[in-house]
């Protein structure tokens, strides 16, 4: 197990955003966290990434227990890709600058070659190197964000809804790219999404979260076979299949 969380909890002013979440991820595995807004799935990811400081419980990475403050060595091995490609790139920095920054932070050599290679790998190429984010489409920005995460050659990527802001045809391209990169670099993924089908496509194992708790953890194959037991998971599955008026009316309102 390269990553494990035990009894992870995060509290925001009296509200338990994450409540006793435990899971573990094997090396080279792709693990998904599914849930609706407010389920705490993104908060779990941010706690793993060290972006929020007030979590409780235990997080282990590669056998060592992680402190609240992460050192640079951690970020050389674990990188993150954010949901909104319009927000995760600095509006005043070119693609070149965005890719050079992690190299500078981690004192890496052969920067010129690495930047060119990273752009090549995400299918952008040299022509995009000196553009500003506003000169790129949403899919291109997300490719830049992926290149930025991969350029330090991490072992693990934390993916926070990486395609939810993109058109479906672009989503397919980005998901294919992520999958290819994972196999090429033997990466471990932890992916968060509200879209059950996207997580099922990308991950072999997934946990369903509702109101801060993991309600069910299962293999994707079992999910596809309809073996989900928890009522919330079943309902999420039904809703993900598409609009059905009878089905919708069977949901109790959540007022």
């Amino acid at each position: 197990m390269i990553l494990s969380a035990e009894n992870l909890g995060v509290e925001f002013t009296g509200l338990k955003a994450v409540d006793g979440a435990s899971f573990s991820v094997a090396r080279g595995e792709s693990y998904g966290l599914v849930g609706e807004s407010g389920s705490g799935k993104s908060t779990v990811l941010r706690a793993l990434a060290g972006l929020i400081g007030n979590w409780t419980g235990t997080i282990r990475f590669d056998g060592r227990e992680l402190a609240h403050d992460r050192d640079r060595g951690f970020y050389a091995r674990v990188q993150m890709v954010f949901q909104d490609p319009y927000g995760s790139l600095h509006p005043r920095q070119t693609v070149d600058r965005a890719l050079a920054e992690p190299l500078a932070i981690h004192n890496m050599d052969r920067r010129e070659a690495r930047i060119e290679k990273a752009l090549e790998e995400v299918g952008l190429g040299h022509g995009f190197r000196f553009r500003y984010p506003h000169q790129l489409s949403g899919g291109q920005r997300q490719r830049v964000a992926i290149a930025r995460a991969l350029i330090v050659e991490p072992e693990m990527l934390l993916l926070d809804e990486p395609t939810s802001a993109l058109d479906v045809s672009i989503q397919a391209e980005v998901l294919n790219l992520l999958d290819a990169l994972r196999r090429a670099h033997n990466l471990t993924f932890v992916m968060v999404s509200h879209n059950l089908a996207v997580v099922a496509h990308m991950c072999a194992r997934l946990a369903v979260m509702n109101r801060g708790k993991i309600v069910e953890e299962m293999d994707t194959d079992a999910l596809r076979r309809g073996e989900a037991k928890d009522p919330y998971t079943r309902r999420l599955m039904a809703a993900s299949r598409g609009y059905d008026r009878k089905l919708a009316e069977s949901f109790k309102t959540l007022d």
Binding site: V168, A172, A197, H201, M237, R241
Partner: peptide, 8 residues
């Protein structure tokens, strides 16, 4: 191009 739940 949309991932489906009913098939892998």
């Amino acid at each position: 191009c949309v991932p489906r739940l009913d098939r892998a």
